[in-house]
């Protein structure tokens, strides 16, 4: 990441989204500075509900200093961060001062990467760029994203982000609608994956969901094998029912051993490049 890429022009272009927001594919166009709110409910202030150095990410990026921003453009019914993810009023205001102090406090733990996570950081992109602009000496920057942003938003991250850690959650638009809360999920994801894959380092994560092997996992693996066969693929097997998951019959239980083994086999048979 180079702070030099965060030019005044780029900051101004990012800031313009707060007055007519098209940062995510809801493309609602609201003026967040005037108090209008889109479905993400975010205003012009990003808030950090947690920040700390963590060790549980993929070996390529851990240890990582994670900055969790509240607010999201999706509504995954199994979200591990629950209300912190969906209520953008939670947490402390992200300012350049708060960010710099937190980065300095984390340095003794020697994080290899700095990671923006949510909720969804893309909906707060202007505030994030402004925070990083004043901080020249950062580790590699990881953008942990649902990849439901617009190409305009990802253009603003070009040259700023060193690695996208992108969730590919659902393998069909129906599941994206039913348990992710968004339309045209796979259409948007497949477009954005191709977009960011050509730009910088990329790890695609999939959180294996109980009961979704055939409708979601297998189509995702098939698509990746066909379109991004060498991409790094991280299969997350630690699903537990969070948030509203217990109201969705198939999601109200942990994964079975058989589901996990079958998923590993499917990825191996497809020749995907698994990372852990």
């Amino acid at each position: 990441m180079t702070v030099a890429a965060i030019t005044a022009d780029r900051l101004a272009a990012a800031d313009a989204h707060y007055r007519g927001c098209r940062l995510c594919e809801h493309r609602c166009g609201v003026d967040r500075t005037a108090g209008e709110r889109g479905p993400c409910k975010a205003g012009p202030v990003a808030r950090v509900f947690r920040q700390r150095v963590e060790y549980g990410d993929e070996r390529l990026i851990a240890p990582s200093h994670l900055f969790y921003l509240s607010g999201c453009d999706l509504r995954c019914v199994f979200c591990i961060n629950e209300l912190n993810a969906f209520d953008p009023r939670r947490g402390d205001e992200l300012t350049p001062e708060l960010f710099r102090a937190a980065v300095e406090a984390g340095r003794p733990l020697q994080p290899r990467t700095l990671q923006w996570v949510g909720g969804e950081p893309t909906i707060h992109l202007p505030a994030v760029l402004a925070a990083m602009a004043g901080c020249p000496d950062l580790p590699r920057v990881v953008w942990k994203t649902d990849l439901h942003g617009t190409p305009e938003a990802y253009d603003l991250l070009d040259g700023v982000v060193d690695l996208y850690l992108a969730d590919f959650k659902f393998g069909n638009n129906g599941c994206g609608r039913r348990i992710g809360g968004v339309e045209r999920y796979t259409d948007i994801l497949s477009r954005n994956l191709r977009l960011v894959a050509g730009r910088t380092d990329l790890i695609i994560r999939h959180l294996l969901l109980p009961g979704h092997t055939e409708c979601c996992y297998r189509p995702i693996v098939t698509w990746l094998a066909g379109h991004l066969p060498t991409v790094k693929f991280s299969l997350r097997e630690g699903y537990l029912p969070h948030w509203q998951a217990n109201h969705y019959q198939e999601l109200g239980r942990p994964l079975s051993r058989r589901e996990i083994e079958s998923a590993r086999r499917i990825a191996a048979d497809a020749g995907l490049h698994l990372v852990s």
């Binding site: 638009n173 796979t186 994801l189 497949s190 189509p219």
Partner: peptide, 20 residues
């Protein structure tokens, strides 16, 4: 619009359309 789907014991499983 609700998902176009078939029933299964775990609830509604929408049609598995492979991503484009």
């Amino acid at each position: 619009e609700p998902p176009a789907g078939r029933e299964h014991p775990g609830g509604v499983v929408p049609r598995a359309e492979p991503p484009p």
